[in-house]
Design a protein around this nucleic acid. Structure first.
Lengths: 213, 213
DNA sequence: GTCATCATGTAAGCCGTTACATGATTGC
DNA sequence: GCAATCATGTAACGGCTTACATGATGAC
């Protein structure tokens, strides 16, 4: 899971550990703060297995601003040094920037297509957030699986709701679970429609089961 | 968590492991199938520490039907034995029925009042399902904490939504996360109102912060 | 006689956490 | 000089899972 998230973020950008954590927190709503105790070992593991490689920070500048050319004069160099201290474009400490390898790309694809078990809401959410990297077919299958899991779960929860023994609080908990499930089911159904709509002609000949009324 | 769930279920009824699992599955919508690999060790642990005690199935009948009194005659006893085999009230295999102890009750109360961390949706749901066993004050505080966590999380997610870099799928994932959070916030707010409404006069003098329009 | 269900347990492993240790740099 | 932020890492542990092992009983 973490591996998948890391590799997904590294698609298209080079990042160091700290940044990965930040992006995981505020680009996807998914993982409010992975702990460093998971993140760094995960990166080390991925590097060992060749899925990512550390690029030894060739310069100090961030991609957007190129390093100022050296002037040659002592006072000039000093000014540059001070400027570095002043602005925020340089690194504060040695940081290891990672880049995904081809191997890593293949690993990512594999992980992404893996089946998130039922109950694994986060697994689904992450995969959906990265769904751009899936084939339309795989994307659809991901949605259908999720939808079916939710429907199954819903009927279980509805069953629980029938129990007259439930006190006020237990009942409200179960009711809320049911509502959330309903919301999720509706969402996946809308997503499915959107997916089917966005490419009317495609090779996928599977029957879209839709109960008649 | 599991401990709390087990102790909660044992409040008011005596159960064996298998039954606990069933009730966890279909009385609360919360834990679709705890694995036995967690459940039995948990029960053993709770028994070791004296939170529950195994009652050595004194009879064979289910709570609802009292055990038939022994006749004293050999053939009579045999009839009882056969009757046991016939009807469904008797056990299929030796089962360990557990009862919560006073010690266990105290442990339950402690666990229930513990703060479920942010991100611990299940922890909150379980506690809310058992909220009957909390004081009005503790119940309210549980709700308020949850509400605040949800609001905080929501503002983070809204921030994520502002990112123009998000592709279609990532965006839909984050949007859905935001919707779910909104739903949950609304729910907790309704629960708070209901709580406050159900006992207009109480000693709790905390200010209910409510933004004026 | 064999399958499904009920019933209890152990062992290994996964995937994350918290707590701790270290260190550069900036701002007050 | 001290706190805050950025940055990387290790060690220990927690809480759950899967896989495996065992066994009684009832239904077909």
């Amino acid at each position: 899971m973490l591996d998948m998230a890391i590799l997904g973020l590294l698609q298209g950008q080079e990042l160091h550990g700290y940044e990965i954590r930040r992006q995981l927190r505020d680009r996807f709503g998914i993982w409010a703060n992975v702990s460093f105790g998971s993140l760094y070992p995960a990166l080390a593991r991925l590097e060992r297995t060749g899925a990512v490689e550390a690029i030894t920070t060739p310069n100090t500048a961030t991609p957007s601003s190129p390093p100022p050319p050296p002037t040659g004069s002592l006072s000039g160099e000093w000014a540059v040094f001070r400027a570095r201290r002043r602005d925020h474009t340089h690194r504060r400490r040695s940081r290891k920037v990672y880049r995904i390898t081809e191997e890593g790309g293949r690993l990512f694809a594999t992980l992404l297509e893996e089946d998130p078990g039922p109950d694994d809401a986060r697994g689904f959410a992450l995969r959906w957030a990265f769904a751009r990297h899936l084939s339309p077919r795989a994307r659809r299958s991901l949605l259908v699986r999720r939808h079916d899991q939710l429907v199954t779960r819903m009927s279980e929860v509805r069953g629980a709701l029938a129990d007259p023994e439930l006190d006020r609080y237990a009942r409200s908990a179960v009711e809320h679970a049911a509502e959330t499930l309903e919301h999720d089911v509706g969402w996946t159904e809308r997503l499915l429609e959107a997916e089917d709509g966005s490419h009317t002609i495609h090779e996928d000949r599977e029957v879209r089961s839709k109960e008649p009324t």
